[in-house]
Design a protein around this nucleic acid. Structure first.
Lengths: 297, 297
DNA sequence: ACACCTAATAACTATGGGTTATCAATTGGA
DNA sequence: TCCAATTGATAACCCATAGTTATTAGGTGT
């Protein structure tokens, strides 16, 4: 009766919610199955809510259980982050910022941010992870990342989005492609070529924007290859397997037999934005965001 | 050693952090002072961080303790909110109902349901999808839909079916068709016309019912066109490509050069039923069904 | 009818949270 | 300077309960 919810319950609950099987979950937790059953039952009594439906032979989550699962994941994750921050504070550091990014952000924006950070807040640790747009947004929602560098038009409720870097697009051609930069007038000249693009589900906004560039030139591109790495795209172009359209700043840092023609006159721009959760309580994040938004003016 | 952080620690910690006095904090928690001291000490060992500075005669928070206090307040508060939400979900006030429907249900039944739902259970989200009878029944069997608005005579084992709206049929004629409403006696007058009907596999019951209306009038209709959209049917009638027989309530909401003659005296009725899976446990669904069956009496 | 799963129940064990009693250290008056 | 008062920490004990083993009851598939 006078029982109290404890973190132990959370871990037990998660194990069962993941395995949907009491014995296996108990094994994973290194406790016995009856003990686990009893704790889950107790948890349901404390919360006064059925969390699992047990038919002999199958266990499944109720709607409430489903909800609780995501909340507990959030809380336990938050707790882990807090523990880490505590150590940082004890050691006199200011904390850690976990940053997600698209490969293309590594050219300019991230190096600048890291240099500035190191100078102004030497105590802030950074933790970098290359992820797709979608993976970043999801990770930020779940507080697995503090901020992400993405190319998206909009983000779900609760997230902030601020442009930090705007870029023209460039056409990527094999070095020996028979078209000189000065002969180039518009993308329509390339309508017959095969196009190599970043995968649509890696960056829908990029994909749509490239499509609109082609549409403006009056054709629909034949897309022969898709990739998620600039390196791969350049390699394919180098080997005459097609041509590409990419954000201009991506051209730097590679050693390839390709040439670039910047689409200066096209109105489309590749916008890199920083994304973070409105109610993120990581104090180090604030410093990062401020740095980014001020320096980019 | 192998100790584990628990929510109990959080409450104890908060009490001490607020009182800055072990004995008073212990009183507030209805436990003894030594017990509290030991738990706090244990907590510091688990986290490997000093949280309080105890000089005899004064207790104060360390920087880490200060930070932890705000984080714990956040977590405990979040937990309270979550508990409250759980109850709501259990009671069916939250969650989502996935509803399938025939176009003809959009005239009356669905708008009414949505209005009522919004009023009585504002937390329930709905997800609407227009599908054929068959597609709905299959989706419900596979738990892809919670409920569907269908026109069928029977449903497979395990599904429930309840009429929610009963309707006469109406003949649809081109606006300038040479037959005035008051001259109309029965469908037999139209035996020579081409008929435009909803596709048989879209709604077998509808199809059979229309056939029986014609049979009763002593003829078998020539069916020239079939469609799944009322809009299309009206358009075809408007252009003198045939006449139609439809559930009466479908006539509302369109702007077409057609006229309707209600078959008041025919015994056939177009019955719209709601269909759902017997063992569907979505609590929000129960509310929907109850609402529907009570209001439709 | 059978073996073989499942989760729940029952009865027991023992960890560790909470207890009381006490100590050591600090403070403040007389 | 000494004593009373008050602080949090220690020590030793107790018992509530998390976790144990053994078993049962209910399903499923052959």
């Amino acid at each position: 009766m006078g029982y109290q919810l404890e973190l132990r319950h959370f871990n037990y609950f998660l194990a069962v919610a993941e395995e949907l099987h009491f014995r296996r979950a108990a094994e994973k937790l290194f406790i016995s199955q009856p003990g686990l059953s009893r704790q889950i039952k107790q948890m349901e009594e404390i919360l006064e809510v059925k969390l699992f439906v047990r038919t002999k032979k199958k266990v499944s989550l109720t709607a409430a259980g489903e909800y609780l699962k995501s909340e507990i994941e959030f809380i336990l994750n938050h707790l882990e982050v807090t523990k880490k921050q505590l150590r940082h504070i004890r050691d006199g550091n200011f904390g850690e910022v976990r940053i997600g990014f698209l490969g293309s952000a590594m050219q300019e924006v991230i190096p600048n941010l890291l240099i500035e950070l190191k100078e102004r807040f030497p105590g802030i640790q950074t933790n970098l992870e290359e992820l797709s747009n979608n993976a970043q947004v999801n990770a930020i929602l779940k507080d697995k990342l503090d901020m992400g560098f993405v190319r998206v038009a909009r983000v779900p409720q609760g997230l902030n989005l601020q442009p930090v870097y705007t870029d023209t697009f460039s056409v990527v051609l094999p070095e020996l492609y028979p078209l000189l930069t000065r002969e180039f007038t518009d993308v329509g000249q390339l309508a017959a070529e095969n196009f190599i693009l970043f995968a649509q589900d890696y960056s829908p906004l990029y994909f749509d924007t490239v499509m609109s560039i082609c549409e403006d030139a009056g054709f629909t591109p034949k897309v022969s290859h898709k990739s998620v790495h600039a390196q791969t795209i350049f390699k394919l172009v180098e080997n005459n397997l097609g041509i590409a359209i990419i954000p201009t700043s991506l051209q730097y840092g590679f050693q390839m037999k390709v040439k670039f023609i910047e689409l200066k006159n096209n109105p489309q721009r590749a916008v890199l934005s920083v994304c973070w959760k409105e109610d993120n309580r990581n104090p180090a994040l604030r410093h990062c965001i401020n740095l980014l938004l001020n320096q980019s003016l």
